[in-house]
Design a protein around this nucleic acid. Sequence first.
DNA 1: CGATATATTGACAGGAGTCAAAGAGGGTGG
DNA 2: CCACCCTCTTTGACTCCTGTCAATATATCG
Lengths: 243, 243
Amino acid sequence: MKSTEMLVRRLRADTRLSFEHLSALEAIPIVIKQVPEDTAIVKEGDRPHQCCLLIEGFASRSKVSAAGVKQIVSFHIPGDVPDLQSLFLGVMDHDLTTISPATLGLMQHSVLEALFEKHPAIARAFWRETLIEASIFREWILNLGARPAPQRMAHLLVELRERMAAVGLTESDVFDFPVTQSELGDALGLTPVHVNRVLQEYRARKLLDVRKNKVTIADHDAAVQEAGFDDVYLHLARNDFPS
Amino acid sequence: MKSTEMLVRRLRADTRLSFEHLSALEAIPIVIKQVPEDTAIVKEGDRPHQCCLLIEGFASRSKVSAAGVKQIVSFHIPGDVPDLQSLFLGVMDHDLTTISPATLGLMQHSVLEALFEKHPAIARAFWRETLIEASIFREWILNLGARPAPQRMAHLLVELRERMAAVGLTESDVFDFPVTQSELGDALGLTPVHVNRVLQEYRARKLLDVRKNKVTIADHDAAVQEAGFDDVYLHLARNDFPS
DNA sequence: CGATATATTGACAGGAGTCAAAGAGGGTGG
DNA sequence: CCACCCTCTTTGACTCCTGTCAATATATCG
């Protein structure tokens, strides 16, 4: 698979880019790098001079409160450029860490800047990506502030399923996602113990399951209903540019 | 005061723009509009063709869960362009509402697009603004997921103070901010009753106070300490581009 | 000055956290 | 190939932060 394949898939899922621009993208010089799981890609305080495309595997971004409580603020799947912001924000305000073995594509800031200057449409596509990401952050704020633990969990998992589906990484109702209950807790603002209780309840109801690095949305319609999930905030091309 | 005065102040606080670019900004055609408090500027589902600069007054962005629980995802102060995203995201995924009488500066999408095309540096400055906003969203996720109610409150208010200070809208330890306890609850994921309890505790400790449309950070150092506040995530120019 | 929104109080309930221990699962090395 | 270890998951008892409900006080405004 070409290293930019997932990136192109992603951009096609939620943006409009011409063939010419997609080709320009595919021509970017990229340095491929394999990293194990639980590896810091960039850390809070860093001043990176490159961005990374997540080609294979998964990553999370997290912050830690002064009291030492960890909060995962986003999960990343193949096709994401999780630290694109470093192009314009000098200092990292959070950590970016793999949660599985991963293949990264490293792109120098200078290369991206030249690309954006030459093709403003590509710059806009990436800008749009960062705005969609901000929209997902808003939904997470809603999730944490306004939904009780079970719905919060269901919402997170249904969201992941939709994002995975958008880049073709789901198979019927199952998708790879190597996350521990403890990490789910860090993302949902819950303790591992409570995550476990919630998951068992959903297993019993045959709604969804998280096991062995795989997430199963056993009853998609019911899960969407349970979570109160509405995909508008993902700004998929089919919604934002109805044909 | 010129209608773009606050915008320029804001951009100077956290970005680097040349005098030439600032002048280009000040030349944008803007339609001034006065709106009362509690007025929807744009609503979820809208497809706006203009963006609004908040010149005077305050606004909030909010979402509502399927269960009907409201969550404020951001507060906006003069100098903000709270719906800049509508330039690239077709559909609004949340509401934007005034929380005080406000003066808006309406800017047509077409005008902004032309400006960005002519001056890529301005486009980048606005892109940077949207990335800083995303950084603030991340901090809110941390706030909601990882901090107990009192610290959560303190963090929100200290953040607001810093943002107000960055555009010169604070006077010693007091700043205007017309927010009800109920709205604070909507932003913090707390009930109005609990907001009240937390505020009374802070009043008693002479740390901070929210009263009569004004926020007082009586003991700034102690409040920063209490909140575990670190301003890196605001990406002020002094931090991101150390001189 | 009444009417409506906002703030305050108190009693009680419940969802989620804490603590601690026991199982399960997956590698690894002898 | 199995014992061992380490991480992750599961359970149970108990606690406590925050929510709920309901009433009262206080502001604000026409």
